[in-house]
Design a protein around this nucleic acid. Structure first.
Lengths: 224, 224
DNA sequence: CCCTCAATCGCCCGAAAGGATGATTTTCGA
DNA sequence: TCGAAAATCATCCTTTCGGGCGATTGAGGG
């Protein structure tokens, strides 16, 4: 391996809506001998269209993009190119996104404050079968694991959701059902023959018991 | 059948939160020779508690009651007393309630503007195996039947709901998902990197396509 | 008898939601 | 290349939500 001819070159493709960061990545990777720039996509939809014709070893995916989440690209990539490695690169470190990324098949998760060296090393690491991730992401993963182990699946436990719903009184259950049907407070009030303020009180109590902040979360917990 | 001794008496029980209407019903029914007043319940919860000890031929149920919907009483009654007839008496004639009542096992559906004669006749009709209903309710039922036949299950079609969701653009789907997670408009805006007004526009378009009026209905359609 | 909890109602206040309309740009297929 | 649809941003205005706070009544348990 003294000369470069027998070095296995790694083709890297990026999908990133931020053109300036795309340029950064390109510069970083073109500075490394065994990397081949396989293309960069600004538009994730375009990327998916082009995917069947791509041959790449590693994909760098942004999570938050204009039209389509990078998360939704993972499965497509894995289906077309089962041996390819997928690394997420994002500014976000929410538990929700980190967990989803790995569940969807991502091989690694880097934050955008990663240094060039770290990015290069992560790509090599992914090729070797590792799961490269930024230190803070690694901590997140450990934290999530702990919570999963404790029987609290994500943030909203499916088991505890049921328990929380059962902790509601008859009246509260009735109000929540109507809320989920899209009824307004005033409509609920007239349907169950109580005042508007009573409905509001019930809803405040429902939110407190379910530990949610608004209608949407309450309904998702009820139906999801 | 010349004397009253061989007339089969019909025991009637009412469950109705409105005491004045309960009194009206009682007066009407006590004026009819072959009816026996089996009791009246103001509180539906109390009614369910007492139900196992009741012997009645016909139940008159209000739909909208303080703690518990009359709809939820139907199954309980049918389980305890399979031969009993259940008539709903309500001021409401929404498709939703009418359909639900019959699906839940109601034998008839009267509006509260029914005359005493109509009520008496409806009870006899139910006993004979009929399905007594106020004229406007009968029309509702026919209308609902037509729509079911046309492949539009209720008002919110389970098949068309899926179609409607698929008619959403990628961006709209993304926004709706975030909405269902309980995100506020401003949070969605920052997460997908667009302005607040753009998010509002997307959501208005989503509501239009899904034919809903608010978050709650949209989320119910998405999750339900 | 006291305490708790469910259910009821009220007031105040700021934030969020949503409706009406109009406009620009990009994209894409006919 | 023309038009439709998607996506973007905006202004104006009203209604609805959501939270904080306090209060009463009745049922039921200790």
């Amino acid at each position: 391996m003294a000369d470069g001819s027998d070095v296995i070159r790694i083709t890297v493709v990026t999908v990133e809506d931020d053109t300036s960061y795309t340029a950064v990545l390109r510069r970083v990777l073109e500075g490394v001998g065994d990397f081949t720039w396989g293309g960069s996509f600004i538009n994730p939809v375009r990327f998916l269209t082009a995917l069947p014709d791509l041959r790449a070893d590693v994909f760098l995916l942004d999570i938050h993009m204009p039209r389509l989440s990078g998360l939704e690209c993972i499965r497509e990539i894995k289906q077309c190119l089962p041996d390819a490695r997928v690394l997420m690169i994002s500014v976000h470190d929410d538990d929700d996104y980190v967990l989803k990324a790995f569940l969807d098949g991502a091989d690694g998760y880097l934050l955008k404050d990663s240094s060039p060296d770290q990015i290069v090393e992560a790509i090599h690491d992914a090729r070797r079968g590792g799961a490269p991730m930024s230190p803070s992401i690694a901590r997140k993963v450990v934290g999530i694991l702990g919570r999963l182990q404790a029987g609290e699946p994500t943030a909203k436990a499916p088991a505890s959701a049921k328990a929380a719903l059962e902790a509601l009184s008859l009246r509260e259950t009735e109000v929540l059902d109507l809320l989920a049907k899209g009824r307004r407070y005033t409509e609920i009030a007239s349907e169950i023959s109580v005042s508007l303020d009573t409905v509001k009180t019930h809803i405040r109590n429902i939110y407190r018991k379910l530990e949610v902040r608004n209608k949407a979360e309450a309904i998702s917990l009820l139906l999801g």
